[in-house]
């Protein structure tokens, strides 16, 4: 009997600090597997965000640095320009990439920096206790919108893939999810492609991963993966938004 699936080399043995059922752990594992498969672990540099994934530097078994809130694309730009032979990626949540860091994200995409961005969208601010994020969907209840997000008062959910598709520099944009096996397999393919694009010097690639946040959604993990299929994915349609 042979071992066919086990913890990838690019993940350390340290246990994640994420809540039970959180999608971050699945996304970490997928990134680690892609990096192992591409054989670039020794020359990969990750940039961790501010948010739930702030401790990503403990979990990945390669170099990871930390950036100020929302600034990973700017830090990645600097690292990639100084060390162009390294594989540089940022790992960001929706509060980091779509709120405080929108500016950096849009300009890094527009300049077509040769970096990979993994954007985890779970529709709330997770670490701070489930407040409304720019990506919170209409009528969704959060800690700061107890009666549901009101479009008239709070504005519309920000759709990052659609927004960046309009920039000239982005070469690959795809929205995927990690709520079931089929979607996890697609996520794996998308993330591997985003890294391959960087190795091939194509330019800016971003993969938006819809992820469950059972605790802040007030659901069990089982309910949260179902809610993603029934509601979340309807507001944020999955698919490729740009592929040059």
């Amino acid at each position: 009997m042979n071992k066919i699936l086990s913890r990838p080399e690019s993940l350390t043995l340290i246990q994640h600090s994420y809540c039970p059922g959180c999608g971050h752990g699945i996304i970490h594992r997928i990134i680690a597997e892609c990096i192992d498969e591409l054989g670039v672990r020794e020359k990969t540099i990750g940039i961790a965000p501010v948010g739930c994934a702030v401790f990503a530097y403990d979990y990945f078994n390669f170099d990871v640095t930390e950036a100020a809130h929302g600034r990973p694309p700017a830090v990645a730009t600097g690292i990639k320009r100084v060390l162009p032979d390294r594989v540089v990626f940022t790992y960001q949540g929706d509060g980091d990439l779509a709120a405080i860091g929108t500016n950096e994200t849009v300009h890094a995409a527009n300049r077509s920096e040769n970096i990979t961005v993994i954007f985890v969208n779970n529709a709330v601010y997770g670490m701070t206790g489930g407040q409304m994020a720019p990506t919170t969907i209409e009528k969704q209840k959060t800690a700061t919108t107890p009666f549901g997000r009101d479009i008239k008062r709070d504005g519309y959910p920000l759709k990052v893939c659609e927004l960046l598709a309009a920039t000239g520099g982005a070469v690959y944009l795809e929205r995927v999810a990690v709520n079931n096996i089929k979607n996890i397999m697609k996520t794996r393919k998308a993330i591997k492609k985003a890294f391959q694009n960087q190795i091939d010097n194509k330019g800016f690639s971003l993969v938006e991963v819809l992820s469950q946040c059972p605790v802040n959604w007030g659901m069990t993990p089982k309910e949260s993966v179902k809610w993603m299929d029934d509601v979340f994915v309807k507001h944020f349609p999955l698919g490729v938004y740009k592929d040059i």
């Binding site: 042979n2 066919i4 246990q15 994640h16 752990g25 699945i26 096996i181 996890i184």
Partner: peptide
């Protein structure tokens, strides 16, 4: 059957599959 679905969805990566 060793399909590995449990491994794929485990957020803690605490499952190993043998076949």
């Amino acid at each position: 059957t060793g399909c590995g679905f449990c491994y794929q969805i485990c957020p803690e990566v605490c499952i190993e599959v043998y076949k």
